[in-house]
Design a protein around this nucleic acid. Structure first.
Lengths: 145, 145
DNA sequence: TGTTTTATATTGATATATCAATTATATTTG
DNA sequence: CAAATATAATTGATATATCAATATAAAACA
């Protein structure tokens, strides 16, 4: 793992970075909202921007499997963060609506999400971040081919 | 998600990048070895370099929880990739030994792991990779504080 | 129109992630 | 040396990841 050749280790670093970020994010969220996961938060944030998306589209946006989304939504409905009703035009789909509890939670979550990002990116120049973005996009493209 | 401000999106990109990389890695491994996961491969690779490490140390190396490692090892013993015996000097610990099947699997895995890395990093200059490494390390440090 | 194909979501099975509580053993300390 | 503390690993509970198989509805097509 501690080779000098970064090609052998940089992919582990990506994994480590996202795991550390998820950890502090979950810790900070849990201080304020007890019964929610960061993945569920992300679902709330996305639905808040566009509540007309399907579960399929939602899955793509958060890089998850359809199966995972189905189960997450199930839990979020059970915990009263979301309502789910059948889509009238396409009866295979569902409407996902954020409940009052969900909206209140969003107000608590949004500032924390901002702080989490700022914490993680603290001390990085905009140039560094742009480069990071560019490089990650290349890796993503490489893997998708 | 499609803000122009990269500070809001770059952390999602990290998540996406590692997920795409894990996907192709698992796909390529599964073509050759049927009953193994990429996480289990990583455990084999690490134990092959140093079979004296404890489960704790192993967990740290692969950025996993102790609990996850316990269960992974349990499965790997069941599938005859590892042997586990009690540590004589410290009876809280265990010795982890790669079986013959494990060794043969390693020979199949190692070249694929190399190809996976090369695929993911294809077209990236050494400079880009070094910068990526540097930036990721900064993020990791930020999150750990 | 009836049949085939495609799209959306669910379910089952298995693996991993994470936290908290617990067990067993080692180490430290009074 | 005994009690307190620390360390290594396990277990239980719950959430997510992934694949394959399935159900249902919509769209395409002949």
């Amino acid at each position: 793992m501690n080779n000098k050749n970064p090609t052998a280790t940089v992919l582990y670093l990506i994994e480590q970075a996202i795991k550390e970020y998820r950890k502090i994010s979950q810790r900070n969220i849990s201080k304020i909202v007890k019964d929610i996961t960061i993945d569920q938060c992300l679902v709330l944030i996305i639905l808040n921007k566009d509540d007309k998306i399907s579960q399929n589209e939602l899955a793509n946006l958060v890089f998850k499997d359809n199966a995972s989304i189905t189960r997450m939504i199930e839990l979020m409905v059970k915990k009263d963060y979301l309502n789910r009703t059948i889509h009238k035009e396409d009866r295979r789909k569902f409407n996902l609506e954020i409940t009052e509890k969900g909206k209140k939670t969003l107000e608590l979550i949004n500032p924390i999400a901002k702080i989490n990002r700022e914490t993680a990116l603290n001390g990085l120049s905009l140039e560094e971040i742009n480069l990071l973005e560019k490089t990650l996009n290349k890796i993503i493209t490489n893997c998708k081919i």
